[in-house]
Design a protein around this nucleic acid. Structure first.
Lengths: 191, 191
DNA sequence: ACAGCCATGTAACTCGTTACATGATTAC
DNA sequence: GTAATCATGTAACGAGTTACATGGCTGT
């Protein structure tokens, strides 16, 4: 019993806890995936659709979610809502577990590490592309932030969105600085 | 042939390419693990020791590394160096692959998302611990940066270390800001 | 009639981890 | 002699991915 859940499981429980469509109707796996894409991916991950369903089945087996089945036709639609046990479990995790230090997988920084092997133009391309992607993500996340508004119940997610925006801004500044360094001839392959 | 390698494989090839002990003696799996711990973990990952050996065996099978076996006693010590094919393969990857957008797994930000469920003191504890960890990491990374010095051949890794330091500084600033917000009563559980 | 979104799931596989097993060399 | 460090690997497992399969509902 109480087999330990992965952090992703807790993240899903958390999303269910945040469900704003109050009257405990719950969310479908499909909707959950959308919410992951919408916010969670910025500072955790957005699990594959198939994993969401697998995870929901597990949470159901453990009694941490309440399932409502709407049998429309031959195929059913399941809505998942946080159960009392689920809420308690989430709360226990929040109050007793020690958060690990963040893990960053940064393919641009990794490549930059070997920048001495390629032309400086290549390094500039990496950085330029990254900066463009940062701009896109920033626009998206800004929209998320705005959608969260000033609702007191959504203050925490809103704060996290702001954290993300600050992070993107910092990444942008660093990347632009590096780009300038490289453009100023301070790089290139060492033969 | 040319089965695609994982990014971690390329990262290891890259570390071999950076090997400063010039005369192509190469590195042992053990040493490689130390170098991963030393720098790569800050912006990629430090694979488990067992994975390093598995990966090295694969790279050997593919002819991307040259292996020198020193049979001291019953047990051997293997030194791995980048082969010509390996260098070419790494270069191809650097010049033709598109870096993915970074993935951040941020357990503190994730928990903060659900901060409305717990006491503000809990949120402050998360942030305080994170800030303390950031300080430690900053000290460590600063040492790495200094060790890399001004050697032209190590300019790229040095730049990445500086990137990491800027990132830590930004995280610290954001965390401290959030901590202040929470301390100013702008939080707490919404019952 | 067909495209596109809503919705759920299985199977095969990869990557990476932890736990375990082993043994040589160096420092005290 | 014994603890720490150097050094190499196997086995079992878990978390997550991609590819695939299925089918209803909605708008044009």
């Amino acid at each position: 019993m109480a087999a330990d859940l992965s952090t992703t499981s807790y993240a899903l429980l958390g999303l269910l806890a945040l469900d704003p469509d109050d009257p405990a109707e719950g969310l479908t796996g499909y909707e959950l995936k959308q919410r992951c894409d919408f916010t969670m991916r910025y500072y955790w991950v957005s699990p594959a659709t198939s994993q969401i369903y697998t995870e929901l089945a597990r949470l159901d087996r453990l009694g941490l979610v309440d399932v409502t089945e709407e049998g429309t036709g031959r195929r059913s639609t399941r809505r998942y809502a946080l159960s009392d046990a689920g809420r308690e479990r989430l709360l226990t995790w929040l109050t007793t577990s020690e958060p690990d230090f963040p893990v960053l997988k940064h393919p641009v920084a990794l490549r930059l590490m070997f920048g001495h092997m390629v032309e400086p133009e290549q390094v500039e391309r990496w950085l330029a592309t990254y900066i463009a992607q940062l701009e896109e993500r920033t626009t998206e996340l800004r929209a998320v932030r705005e959608m969260l508004g000033d609702d007191a119940r959504l203050r925490s997610p809103a704060r996290v969105a702001e954290w993300g925006l600050a992070y993107f801004a910092s990444e942008r500044a660093i990347s632009e600085d590096l780009r300038k360094q490289v453009a100023d001839g301070d790089g290139g392959p060492v033969t």
